[in-house]
Design a protein around this nucleic acid. Sequence first.
DNA 1: CATATTTCTTGATATAGATCAACGTTTCAA
DNA 2: TTGAAACGTTGATCTATATCAAGAAATATG
Lengths: 192, 192
Amino acid sequence: MKEHYEVIKNAFRPLEIGEDRHLEFLEFWEVVEYSKGSFLTESGQVEHYFYVVLEGVQAVYILTPNGDKKVIGFSFDGRFSGIYDSFLKASGSHYFLEALTDSKLLRMNKAQYDSLFELYPEFNEWGRVVHQELLIGRVQREVELITMDAKERFDVFMKRCPEKLLTVPQKYLASYLNMTPETFSRMRKRIS
Amino acid sequence: MKEHYEVIKNAFRPLEIGEDRHLEFLEFWEVVEYSKGSFLTESGQVEHYFYVVLEGVQAVYILTPNGDKKVIGFSFDGRFSGIYDSFLKASGSHYFLEALTDSKLLRMNKAQYDSLFELYPEFNEWGRVVHQELLIGRVQREVELITMDAKERFDVFMKRCPEKLLTVPQKYLASYLNMTPETFSRMRKRIS
DNA sequence: CATATTTCTTGATATAGATCAACGTTTCAA
DNA sequence: TTGAAACGTTGATCTATATCAAGAAATATG
């Protein structure tokens, strides 16, 4: 597990995990692998894990009554993953979490996660700040969905899209931007 | 301030503020009033306060380049209010926070808010949980905006809309549901 | 490597909901 | 209380983007 210390340390920044405790903290994690197309969690299930991504790209999406996937977000190297609301509330998820590429992740279960806050009260501050960041990010996306048309969403997304994400099929990116693959393709063409 | 103890206590649930501390805690707050149509915060300003609403309804919105208001959310009796991201990061806000009715609120400033977490470490847990709830709520709204058409958004909203909100001009509700007042009016008619 | 499957592109058409316009109704301020 | 302003309704259009269709390109699989 030691080889993953840097990844975990970065993921939890700015929290400083004391030198004395980091070996103990590493014990919380286990490595899991998922192959492309497999599901970490499916709709209806409870999310039992909290993840840090080592390799690969994953997507969270919902399935609408007419069967289209609507992508809510992506996760990749060095970031957290999981169906966070289901995990926190230990209640059934409405989402799918799918590995879009072969993936390797670290995970801990709910009991371990909860014990973090008991064992190390300073994690509460980390939790507060991380939730705050996530919240700001979600509101940002909401504003973009509301105020921008397809062209603007495409342009803004492309400007700040990390390379990794461009390796997944375009239909997932299109869905994340709340447009059809056809529209995405036309936005793309427009540039050249 | 003592007369507001119940409101504050409820707002911060499930956090238990120890009997010994609650008088001290009450000292953090001051009462402010805003008349209908006035702004608690305007775009460009930094939000200096964190609010608990005693009376009235407030809306958060952004102004698009073509000058339409896009309502992001409402706050009312017993709930928190403020431009939370600007407040937390002490950076300029892109939002307007407007009193839609005459309003009375409790507020504390950023220094006081920060000191809460230093003086009372148990507030970190409260902060973590509150941010978690807010996050879940925002994702919920995002999913509804993405997956539902105007009719569905209207129906779902009406089913769970608190009475208070129906007193504000319909154009604000329409904007919150990401539709024009005309469309809102037509959705309304459809029912009867 | 070959071919089956999935993804991407391009054009033609359809449609939800926006926009525009005009009028009725409510709210507000003097 | 009254006139002016803001808000709500209704109908006629317009438009961005979805949907449908069909072929081309890429990718996966035996």
